[in-house]
Design a protein around this nucleic acid. Sequence first.
DNA 1: AATGAATGAGTCTTCATTCAT
DNA 2: GATGAATGAAGACTCATTCAT
Lengths: 213, 213, 213, 213
Amino acid sequence: MPSPSTRQRRKDARPQELLDAAMALFVEKGFAATKSEEVAARAGVSKGTLYLYFPSKEELLKAAIRHTLSADIAAGAQMAEAHTGSCSELLQDVMSAWWLRVYSSSSACIFKLVLTEVRNFPDIADFYLREVIEPGTAVITRMVQRGIDAGEFRPVDVTGTVHSIVLPMIMLCVHKHSLGACPNMEASLGDPELFIRQHMSLLLGGLRRPAAT
Amino acid sequence: MPSPSTRQRRKDARPQELLDAAMALFVEKGFAATKSEEVAARAGVSKGTLYLYFPSKEELLKAAIRHTLSADIAAGAQMAEAHTGSCSELLQDVMSAWWLRVYSSSSACIFKLVLTEVRNFPDIADFYLREVIEPGTAVITRMVQRGIDAGEFRPVDVTGTVHSIVLPMIMLCVHKHSLGACPNMEASLGDPELFIRQHMSLLLGGLRRPAAT
Amino acid sequence: MPSPSTRQRRKDARPQELLDAAMALFVEKGFAATKSEEVAARAGVSKGTLYLYFPSKEELLKAAIRHTLSADIAAGAQMAEAHTGSCSELLQDVMSAWWLRVYSSSSACIFKLVLTEVRNFPDIADFYLREVIEPGTAVITRMVQRGIDAGEFRPVDVTGTVHSIVLPMIMLCVHKHSLGACPNMEASLGDPELFIRQHMSLLLGGLRRPAAT
Amino acid sequence: MPSPSTRQRRKDARPQELLDAAMALFVEKGFAATKSEEVAARAGVSKGTLYLYFPSKEELLKAAIRHTLSADIAAGAQMAEAHTGSCSELLQDVMSAWWLRVYSSSSACIFKLVLTEVRNFPDIADFYLREVIEPGTAVITRMVQRGIDAGEFRPVDVTGTVHSIVLPMIMLCVHKHSLGACPNMEASLGDPELFIRQHMSLLLGGLRRPAAT
DNA sequence: AATGAATGAGTCTTCATTCAT
DNA sequence: GATGAATGAAGACTCATTCAT
């Protein structure tokens, strides 16, 4: 009895297993330096099987990028919606929870992968702009804007502020999969959770309106 | 007139011409996706000539990384030494001038290159740690520490603060050579000089000790 | 009918087919002057297939040398064991049968190949000494020594005698694959069987104790 | 004063220095595996200079072969002419002196070189047959034939006997430059002078007419 | 559906030969 | 004459992709 359903379960899981394997290897070695046979081997299937599910190595890359990260972006939006409290608390809490989740999931890979491969596969840029940059930026922009509108933050340049907030987060993710993955380099950026909190706290110090005299 | 020295002059200039060509292409397409013949062609020589100056494509990569950036790091240290004024002004002015210089020079390439290739060439990690991360971090650390010691800054965690300061700068450089180099994406992070000033200003807001009551 | 096993049968036969092709071409043109694609073509496969079975051209050479000749050396030892009769007859009969077999088989190639390539691949020397020179010399030495011990041969220097016996045989094999394979040179050393008999006969004339007066 | 004549002397000696260098390297590594720059370097000149004296690597090979050995063949003929004594003594003495001279000179290289390269350069075969095999064989043939005609030797097959005599000598020369030149293999064929004497002595034992009863 | 043997276009690297100095 | 920088054709080896089983 386990035979037909087990097989079915395997078969249904295959594409995702292949995507995970591809993601891991593309992030580690880069697209061009990863052999399709390695991807298959890591997913526990043979070279031929890979081509049953994806028509080429390039499509595998695009699929790997497409199927990751969108859920984690949406999660950030939801966290922001759900939060009650001051805007400072909102930024602190949401950014910590959200980016720790991103950092810990396989979404973190995407950043390095996109940075590395966009110039060879320009399609990726469109997708990334539409699915990642725009919604991600929107979530943070809304939180900052809300603080300004509420008089809690100073009337700073919102776009620049968003970048000040988010670029170190992305850098953290990229680092995790490049220098941070090299032997003897593991600790180079310290504990990510701590860093995120400190970073937000420092920025909030600059962001908050000084208490009225 | 060009008779006795034309040949010699070419020969002396070749290594740097090849390194420049290699740097540009490795950054654009990645090491594995760059053909050695392309590097030669961009430097205006034939395939064979490349191998007269560098024993392999891998050595060319390492040389390209080694011969760039160190000068720009040292420049930052000098700027910091030379500055007179408050610690806030120091941080603002030095970081702006320094990182705009880095951003505009070919040093900016190095960050993307290292992020992309360290995992395939672990030697790079040692070099980068020793020649870039350590001296670069030291310059910024000193500036922050001086502000704390002088009572101008609050007694923050120095390491985390340095990361908050520098990670967006690096991200700016990386971005310039990945998404920022894609058509229709040029403006995505805005004007770098403006961003650097805003970023430093925001951080300094959080860093400065509130005026005594 | 060929369905389940045709592929397998090919796969099992491939290594030997490739070794035979390699042997023939290496002997004809030398290792360095033989292209790996030629070897593949002669074995009826493509370049890539060659590398499925052997990791490099050099390993192909070593394998070709290792897998040939040992059987023919052992055959000589057996012939010597099996023979009954005088020591003169033994030497005549065994050397004729044995070396005609060697001369006619692909073993004959090995001598030229080893002479030609040892200095570039010193590993070959160890193998050849251990697997060819030592066992081959031992067979002939035993036959000569037996004749001396039995009082049938004069008490000559055994080592030198063995060389007198065997060097022309080897030369015959080498010649077959160099000058002897050139157009208009086929007949230059005459019929090998006849020569071997005459050579042994001449040597036995010098070897045999003169009949007691 | 030494300046113009020294230079002239160098210039006159160049071709021979290049040929010697080429010979040594071609014998050691084979023609295809020898780089023309190595030949130039060993002769103490630059790559370009080599092409001033020889139009191509192939011509260098042919010239190297052509300019060696003929003198040593002629020397053998003279030794045979000059000898007085029995035919046995003649064979012993001439073969020893002659082949020891060949073995010790750079002529010994030719045998290996020809064996190795004829099949790639068929021109060599003609030269070798005409300049080496034929005159060399003639010298030995004459000595054997004289012994038979004088009743000193048995009426053996002359051609075969010549081969029995000469093949080990050639093998000695070939060996000197292949296995014999490998580390740990130097002594493998013993002292050449001793071997040549023993070999001739053994053959003469088979060749001499038994003393009349 | 899964496999893995086979292919051959594509890359890195070498080296005989040329030619400006 | 002599040099050695430059060339580019040629050769070893790799790997994405196909397809018979």
